[in-house]
Amino acid sequence: MSAHAHVATVDYAALDDNALVALVRSGQREAFRHIMQRCNQRLFRVARAVLGEDAEAEDVLQESYMRAYNKLDSFRGDSSLATWLTTIVLNEARGRLRKRHTMVDLEQVDAAPDDSHQVIRFPSKFGSEDPLVSAARSQIRGLLEHAIDELPPAFRTVYMMRDVEECSVEETATMLAIKPETVKTRLHRARRLLRASLHGQLANTMSEAFPFMGQRCARVTAAVMARLEDAQPT
């Protein structure tokens, strides 16, 4: 049996992240495609939360994956692979913001007074949903995505990671290099702003916001695989 035939029989989908990393390190580039497909949704959402724009978020993903592939030997498994990749994406996205010279003064944002009184939590999901809401899901999701885009960047990133991707407070704080209490404060304010914008009716569409499946996922994955192929010595 040829080496190529052996690689083709690997059931990548059944492997955990560490096993995929080990295969990539051993020279099986195809395993990296499955890492990307497994992490694309979260990483796109994080990049888009920082940048607020689809095309640049996709570009950040490509660059981040190239960086990750080239420094995969530095992944020690101290955190999950998704967390490690998220940190790379955040660094790349923030670098783009610095080039734009539009970084938000986060200390000023966090010091802003919270003028809310009685605050009702903006939930991640409803236990049940109105049939009319379900029938209009795509239109509602569009409204929700627009409302999230309108959040201040510092709040938008925390909201995307906590309520959309359901990262823990501790994981979010570590990845963003902020205090857990700051995560809680920004999430609280983001929910309040969204509630005011959406009248508290649209939280059940959280899990479908900013999809990164189908053609978009395939486009980024194929582009990175092509770049890796080009980068190999002949």
Rank of each mutant, 00 (worst) to 15 (best):
54 D>S: 10
152 P>V: 05
58 E>G: 08
226 A>N: 08
132 L>R: 09
229 E>S: 15
23 L>D: 00
102 T>I: 15
27 G>H: 01
75 F>V: 05
145 E>K: 08
83 T>M: 07
28 Q>D: 13
31 A>S: 05
114 D>T: 04
216 R>L: 03
69 Y>H: 14
64 S>M: 02
107 E>S: 10
36 M>N: 00
176 L>E: 03
169 V>I: 14
33 R>K: 13
32 F>W: 00
29 R>M: 11
45 R>H: 07
92 E>T: 15
154 A>E: 13
121 R>V: 15
227 R>I: 04
2 S>C: 03
89 V>P: 07
200 G>N: 02
59 D>L: 03
121 R>C: 15
209 A>I: 10
59 D>Q: 09
2 S>D: 08
204 N>Q: 10
21 V>L: 03
226 A>D: 15
108 Q>F: 05
33 R>A: 04
144 L>F: 13
74 S>K: 13
76 R>D: 09
117 H>W: 11
49 A>V: 02
146 H>N: 14
45 R>V: 04
211 P>R: 01
228 L>Q: 06
40 N>M: 14
15 L>D: 01
156 R>H: 03
14 A>F: 02
77 G>T: 11
213 M>D: 14
154 A>N: 12
114 D>N: 11
234 T>M: 12
119 V>N: 10
9 T>A: 10
92 E>F: 01
179 K>F: 09
43 L>D: 07
113 P>N: 12
69 Y>W: 04
19 A>K: 12
190 A>N: 05
161 M>G: 05
56 E>P: 06
198 L>N: 07
98 R>W: 05
137 R>L: 08
91 N>F: 07
41 Q>S: 11
125 K>E: 13
182 T>A: 13
220 V>Y: 02
34 H>T: 03
217 C>Y: 06
51 L>E: 07
97 L>W: 00
70 N>G: 14
35 I>M: 03
129 E>M: 13
204 N>V: 06
34 H>L: 03
123 P>T: 09
159 Y>F: 15
36 M>V: 01
182 T>Y: 05
6 H>I: 09
18 N>R: 10
49 A>E: 05
234 T>I: 12
188 H>Y: 09
52 G>P: 08
217 C>M: 11
179 K>L: 12
77 G>M: 04
203 A>I: 01
177 A>G: 10
63 E>K: 10
2 S>Q: 05
136 A>S: 06
20 L>Q: 00
7 V>Y: 02
219 R>A: 15
51 L>P: 04
19 A>P: 02
106 L>Q: 12
11 D>A: 11
215 Q>H: 11
88 I>C: 01
71 K>V: 09
110 D>E: 13
165 E>P: 07
99 K>V: 08
24 V>Y: 03
214 G>A: 11
108 Q>W: 03
196 A>Y: 08
109 V>D: 02
122 F>T: 06
150 E>G: 04
156 R>F: 00
18 N>F: 12
183 V>W: 00
67 R>K: 11
96 R>L: 04
166 E>G: 07
173 A>F: 02
96 R>P: 00
203 A>Q: 13
210 F>D: 04
121 R>T: 15
35 I>T: 00
132 L>T: 14
138 S>T: 12
156 R>V: 03
169 V>S: 04
119 V>C: 09
161 M>R: 02
46 V>E: 06
209 A>P: 02
103 M>D: 08
215 Q>M: 11
100 R>G: 06
179 K>E: 14
6 H>N: 14
103 M>V: 02
234 T>F: 15
192 R>S: 13
11 D>E: 10
202 L>E: 03
46 V>S: 05
78 D>A: 10
